[in-house]
Amino acid sequence: MASPQAVSSPNPEVSNLATPVNSSGIIKAFISNLPAYRAGLAPQRRGLEVGMAHGYFLLGPFTLLGPLRHTDQAYLAGLASTIGLVVILSACLAIYAAVNTAPPLPSVAAPKAPADLNTGKGWSEFTSAFLIGGIGGAAVAYLLVANLPVLSSFSILAK
């Protein structure tokens, strides 16, 4: 078995080949700075960061592309849809935590996976924080877009 430093295999069936994109220093630095791979974070903090980002950016497509997009209820329908999807994603994370017993495999771009996500307890903490962060991120995005006329009246945003 290969050591963690030599994770690239010449066998293409392993699907872990080193390419100029995934083995470059910039990509490795970017991926190692994501909350899923950042060193020193608790599972709750990882889940909160990932959930807030997902809740925040999922509101836009539901609001702008949903069936109520040209009505007064578009923002509220987008909020409800985003919260619904975050709940579904949290259920999927809980199911994954229940059935996954193998530690994550190292890859070229992320050779060190966090050890706290190798356990069921770590995944359940990540999942509960993801749910809270996702709903909170969606609520913050809703408050921002619903109050955009008020925010645009300030001189800083009017320029």
Rank of each mutant, 00 (worst) to 15 (best):
V86H: 10
L34P: 08
S90F: 12
A98S: 12
L34Q: 15
E49L: 11
G120A: 09
L117N: 02
I27P: 00
P114K: 01
A113T: 05
L48P: 04
I95M: 14
P35I: 05
A109H: 04
L79G: 03
A113W: 04
L117M: 07
P10G: 09
I27N: 02
A80V: 12
S124R: 09
S153C: 08
N100E: 07
L65F: 15
P61G: 04
F57G: 07
G136S: 14
S152G: 10
T119C: 04
G122M: 03
L131W: 07
P10I: 10
G25Q: 02
M52V: 07
D116A: 00
G134S: 14
G84I: 07
T71M: 11
L93Y: 09
I88A: 10
I26D: 00
A42E: 04
L85N: 07
P61T: 06
A110F: 00
T101C: 10
Y37A: 11
R38S: 07
L59I: 14
E125R: 13
G122F: 04
H54I: 06
Y75N: 13
I27L: 01
N16G: 02
A109F: 00
T71I: 13
E125N: 10
F154H: 12
A42S: 15
L59T: 09
G78T: 01
A94H: 14
P61L: 02
L48Y: 08
K121T: 13
P104A: 14
P114E: 03
L93H: 13
L131R: 04
G133Y: 05
L59E: 09
L85V: 11
G122D: 00
N100R: 13
G137Y: 14
A91N: 10
A94D: 13
S32L: 02
H54G: 03
F130Q: 05
Y75K: 13
G78K: 09
A36D: 08
P12E: 09
N33E: 14
N118A: 03
A110W: 01
G55Q: 09
A36R: 11
P10D: 12
P43T: 02
